[in-house]
């Protein structure tokens, strides 16, 4: 078994190289990179001064200056060399320097961790706290009016993406046209530093209610139905029949015997808890104007800040791959029937 997981961890390496190489290639082929950006900036300043230089290239810059710019950003080397260099630095935990912020990429990304972890963790915990009991309850009451009504809610939740619901909630409750119950976005109020402890808690709740709700909606339907179906399947098993036959109470059969087994598929999802560091959905963060990881990724793509965009990709893909393996490990831990070879 440990051999299996060692092999799995080793397989991260080719997968990681595959992912980053694909994205690196795409990014480097893009026009509008840092060199072109600097040239454009230089041209602007040139036209402001109204003067010109003698030997200008097609781009309006002295040839040697263009070469210097290319050298500065590493664009003077062929693409596979650039990728090799970049990968070499990544192995040494150096993600490079942001073109826009002029800071090391790791520092830029690190500064967004608190927001993302806060949002990710609350959304994650809340969705498990709501969906699992709801799914269990639906399974026990299968076919009743409660099951039917809650299924309707589940369908509604599945049909509208969380971020899109967020826009509607903002319009309705953000004080634009209807009720003014919640702030229009942002992570914390401006006067955060001056608030007392309890005020901080209420302010944070006030600001985070809608975004966290939207995070929850994203996984609400799948998790609830997964729980329900899993428990339903177990309730039809022979060991449940045996438990009933030996005279156990229904409560005990369901909650002690069947429920434990039916939580196996749900527990395996826990492996992806490592990904919540980067849980920022840029859609939700854009809607609610929260300056988190997702928004950083989005703006870095818009501004062609490749070191940051690649850095986020590196961290998120490593976390995803590790999360996959962790999920399998949890699977083995909670279900002794599973053998990976």
């Amino acid at each position: 078994m440990s051999g299996y997981f060692i092999r799995r961890f080793l397989l991260i390496i080719p997968t990681f190289i595959g992912i980053t190489a694909a994205v690196f290639l795409v990014m480097q082929l893009v026009p509008g990179g840092p060199v072109e950006r600097q040239i454009a900036r230089y041209k602007e300043s040139l036209s402001e001064r109204g003067g010109g230089r003698a030997s200008l290239t097609e781009t309006g810059l002295p040839t040697d200056a263009v070469e210097e710019l290319k050298k500065f950003y590493g664009f003077d080397k062929p693409i596979h060399v650039r990728y090799g260099l970049w990968l070499w630095n990544v192995i040494h935990l150096d993600l490079g320097r942001s073109y826009i912020y002029q800071d090391p990429v790791w520092d830029v990304i690190k500064s967004r961790f608190p927001v993302s972890i806060f949002l990710g963790l609350t959304g994650f915990l809340l969705s498990y706290l709501v969906c699992v009991p709801l799914g269990v309850f639906k399974a026990i009451r299968h076919g009743t009016r409660f099951d039917f009504l809650s299924s309707t809610v589940v369908f509604l939740g599945y049909s509208v993406p969380g971020w899109a619901l967020g826009t509607a909630l903002l319009v309705l409750f953000g004080g634009g046209s209807f009720w003014s119950l919640f702030p229009l976005g942002g992570f914390r109020p401006d006067n955060w530093e001056y608030l007392g402890f309890f005020q901080k808690i209420t302010a944070q709740l006030h600001y985070m209610f809608l975004p966290v709700f939207c995070y929850m909606i994203e996984s609400f339907a799948t998790l609830t139905i997964l729980t329900k179906n899993s428990l339903m399947e177990n309730l039809g098993q022979d060991y449940v029949r045996t438990a009933f036959a030996k005279g156990l109470s229904e409560r005990r059969v369901i909650f002690v015997h069947a429920l434990r087994n039916s939580l196996i598929p749900i527990a395996t999802g826990l492996g992806h808890v490592v990904s919540i560091i980067l849980a920022g959905s840029f859609l939700i963060e854009k809607v609610f104007n929260i300056d988190g990881m997702g928004y950083l990724g989005y703006t870095s793509i818009l501004q062609r800040d490749y070191p940051v965009a690649l850095g986020i990709l590196v961290i998120s893909s490593v976390l995803l791959l590790v999360g996959n393996i962790l999920s399998d490990m949890i699977y083995v831990l909670v279900d002794p029937r599973i053998r990976f070879r």
Binding site: L11, G18, V23, L29, V30, P31, E58, L283, L320
Partner: peptide, 30 residues
């Protein structure tokens, strides 16, 4: 299966945005 695993490990929307951001109307000089 390995190739598919690599391909599906790419963050879906993030990658699509990277690719689509390239395909803004591109006018190269000249």
């Amino acid at each position: 299966q390995r190739a598919i695993e690599i391909w599906s490990s790419l963050p879906f929307l993030y990658t699509i945005i990277i690719v689509s951001s390239i395909i803004v109307p591109v006018y190269l000089p000249g």
